[in-house]
Amino acid sequence: MKNKYKLIATAAMGLEAIVAKEVRDLGYDCTVDNGKVIFQGDALAICRANLWLRTADRIKVVIGEFTATTFDELFEQTKALPWGDYLSEDAEFPVIGKSVKSQLASVPDCQAIVKKAVVEKIKQHYGIQSAWLDEKGAVHKIEVAILKDVVQLTLDASGIGLHKRGYRADQGEAPLKETLAASLVLLTNWTADKPFVDPFCGSGTIPIEAALIGQNIAPGFNRDFVSEDWEWIGQSLWDKAREEVENKANYDQHLDISGYDIDHRMINIAKENAFEAGLGELITFKQMQVNDFTTKKDYGVIIGNPPYGERLGERPEVEKMYKEMGKAFASLDTWSIYMLTSHEGFESLYGKKATKKRKLFNGFIKTDFYQYWGKRPPRNM
């Protein structure tokens, strides 16, 4: 078995550079492609990437890559790969697939052929004589992805997507994905010693992600991963990775994080989610309208994901709220303010042109992340 593996951290469009920085911060060199970050690592890297990457969607292990233009080529080259090094004798291995601009355009056929090839290789590797495999063991989901006749076969090492942190007891109508919430925090100049406010906190995702970042708590600390059951990784490596998570957490770091929302029901949900994450005592949640926000603190950061007014009937109310928010925040000259919205008229309604804008996708909604940078604190602070 090779000690190094080719690994992929998948990423939402526009977040690849943030994922790449996280991968490099873990100590791995990487390259960036559309929707993914590619890096090399040992089996421990698989554990660490799953536990630590805040902004990636999932971790995949590349088993093989080759060119195939016929089903025979797909079968033979899939079968030639060392599946026995990865899949146990009783492994459950569903096959999913996608094909783009390739001669092998039928995804169901490609999935069936890959499945058949892996079955043949596993039977050969373990000397199994029966017609069928048991498939009652650990899950190893195989993906066959074909782009312009180049086939890539991977194993999904995450299972449930990495945005599922394990703390969300409840949520609102249109919850922000945890991975995007973490990305918004990482795109700001916030550090754990500064006040942090989310005036549209909803179910609390942005403040919770900020608290995890502020205390350097790994986002995967509270959940399981499908690859924890893989024999070739082993429990000892997962134990080592989780021990690192515990050792690197800074639970003594003081945080000043607040979340506000107009809906008292969402405030109750946010409190519940924060307690589920073990952060209930660290974050202050309170029912409040954005135009009522005032503070005597300086050099803080505000991050918000306000309503966008996507539905026609909501637009006048949302636009009025943007204007009120601009007035409420106008005096906060030492604060940096960051707002995510799809409303193209946000700057004129808010009453100020953004220092910088960044295009991001909230699910399938194209948005801009409007950034207003406040004054820098004096050097002696």
Results as ranks from 00 to 15, higher is better:
65 E>D: 07
11 A>N: 06
348 S>N: 14
332 L>S: 05
18 I>F: 14
87 L>F: 10
372 Y>F: 13
21 K>R: 14
298 D>C: 08
184 L>Q: 07
298 D>G: 02
136 K>A: 13
324 E>S: 11
332 L>T: 03
287 Q>P: 08
347 E>I: 05
52 W>F: 14
222 N>T: 09
299 Y>Q: 01
198 D>Y: 02
120 E>A: 13
228 E>Q: 14
344 E>V: 13
379 R>M: 07
380 N>M: 09
142 I>T: 09
291 N>D: 15
293 F>N: 00
300 G>K: 06
21 K>V: 03
49 A>P: 03
258 S>R: 10
342 S>P: 14
207 P>G: 04
333 D>Y: 03
300 G>D: 05
208 I>M: 01
207 P>T: 02
41 G>K: 04
31 T>M: 08
147 L>C: 11
45 A>N: 02
68 A>S: 10
38 I>K: 02
77 Q>E: 15
55 T>N: 10
379 R>W: 09
312 L>Q: 14
238 W>L: 05
62 V>L: 08
263 D>E: 11
298 D>T: 11
291 N>R: 11
99 S>K: 03
308 Y>S: 06
353 K>G: 04
176 L>I: 15
280 G>S: 09
155 L>D: 03
85 D>A: 14
48 R>I: 14
57 D>I: 00
110 C>K: 03
166 G>Y: 05
50 N>T: 07
248 K>S: 15
